[in-house]
Amino acid sequence: MSNISWCYEVIELSSQSFLVKYVIKAYFEVEGVVERPDVIGAVFGQTEGLFGSELDLRELHKTGRVGRIEIELKSEKDRTKGKIIIPTSLDRVSTAIIAASIESIERIGPCKARVWLEKIEDVREAKRKAIIERAKEILHQWNLEKQPETEEIFREVSEILRISRVQKYGPEKLTAGPDIDSAKEIIIVEGRADVINLLKIGIQNVIALEGVKIPETIIRLTKEKEATAFLDGDHGGDLILKELLQVANIKYVARAPKGKEVEDLNAREIKEALKNRISVEELLKRRKRKKIFVSKEIEEAIKEVKGTREAILLDEKMNEISRLPVSELAEKLKEMDGVNTVVFDGVITQRLVDIASEKNIKYLIAVRISDVIKQSLNVKLLTFNNISN
């Protein structure tokens, strides 16, 4: 089946099979001699807590969304050079964030270090190319062996494929269906695989963003046509929706079920999601209705921690007990008593909720709540956007 290597396609993780979508490959250079465990420790330790548990490498490794991290290294003349290889089953946005966080590593072991990204391999793209090459071989052999009466069937199937083919649209060459120009309404999705999935069930007025930055073509189309944003049900989808609402004229929003990607939905799930779309106007009204009034002390604490990566701990009378870095928050909360409210510039994770429940903390207030939280009955979770002045 050609010369394509499948070494990263499926990795055995504990008792489960781990299907790899992307492989992050990064180089590193260390001013000193280090071992593989030092590099692994830096990868896990220096990226911990940057983006919450849903993008924490330890958590992702435990839940099987990041595979075994491979390290290749060589030491000579008091310097160590090598490569970090991280297979993931995450979406494109999350994989890019993980890659960027790896580049933020500054020390490995006791030594100063530099890490830079070589590339992110799309394993599925490699697989698709190999399948296409094999399909060409099969088709060629089939054409040699086919009977004359199959000619008409072949022409009919080719015509169906021609009608539903994927196209490149606009100066950015965005992946799209064939009906973008003729349709009065368009559906905007995140990537190429999403477009293909919608084409399979006959939806041809679809176009992909293909990145976090919104292309000018999308901005123009949303001014000319009624646009529905159909996005993944994860944090990446939240970020893209936020930017779309700022720069484009979106009329409706549809989302994949929580934790799912549009490319993985079946026909029923796609139709249901589009049927349940809501107008942007209604979405903004819902967000407004969620506003909650809090004390002046909490409002002040929110203003003080924004952009600082710090936490402020308040007692029952709203007096400040302590102020500390968010990276130390979980461990410090375990040791402290009498905390009523925690306000911090970070993400509310399941670990923090569990600690708060154990320590009888009433409120956790932060920038964002992780997508994988199991709500505790005795801890109220709020975001800065929920708070009304």
Rank of each mutant, 00 (worst) to 15 (best):
M1A: 15
N3Y: 07
I11H: 13
L13E: 07
S15T: 14
V20R: 04
V30H: 13
E35P: 06
I40L: 15
A42T: 06
V43T: 12
Q46N: 08
E48C: 11
L50A: 14
F51S: 11
E54Q: 10
E54M: 03
H61Y: 11
G64D: 13
I69A: 00
S75N: 04
E76N: 02
D78Q: 14
K83S: 00
I85N: 00
T88R: 06
S94T: 15
I105M: 11
I105P: 10
R107P: 03
P110F: 12
A113V: 08
V115F: 06
W116A: 09
D122V: 02
D122F: 05
R124M: 14
K127I: 13
K127C: 03
R128F: 12
R128P: 04
K129Y: 11
I132T: 08
I132N: 06
I132S: 06
R134G: 00
W142V: 02
E145S: 09
K146C: 00
T150H: 05
R155A: 09
L161V: 02
L161D: 04
Y169T: 03
Y169K: 02
G170M: 07
K173Q: 15
I180D: 09
D181I: 13
E185H: 14
I187T: 01
V189F: 01
N197E: 12
I201P: 07
N205R: 06
V212M: 15
P215E: 05
E216R: 15
I218L: 11
R220I: 05
T222L: 13
K223M: 03
F230C: 10
D232T: 10
G233A: 09
K242H: 10
E243S: 07
Y252N: 09
V253M: 00
V253Q: 02
V253Y: 04
A254H: 05
A256W: 07
E261P: 04
L265S: 04
E272K: 06
L274V: 06
N276G: 15
S279K: 11
V280Y: 14
E281T: 14
L283M: 10
R286T: 11
I292A: 00
V294P: 12
K296Q: 10
E297F: 08
E300S: 13
K303N: 10
V305H: 06
R309V: 09
K317S: 03
M318Q: 10
E320V: 15
I321L: 13
V326C: 01
E331S: 01
K332C: 02
L333M: 07
K334F: 10
E335H: 04
M336T: 08
M336C: 08
V339Y: 08
N340K: 07
V342F: 04
V343I: 15
D345Y: 00
G346Y: 05
I348Q: 12
R351I: 15
V353P: 06
D354H: 09
A356G: 09
E358R: 08
S370W: 01
V372K: 14
I373N: 06
S376F: 01
S376V: 01
L377A: 13
N378E: 14
L381E: 05
L382R: 01
T383Y: 08
I387E: 11
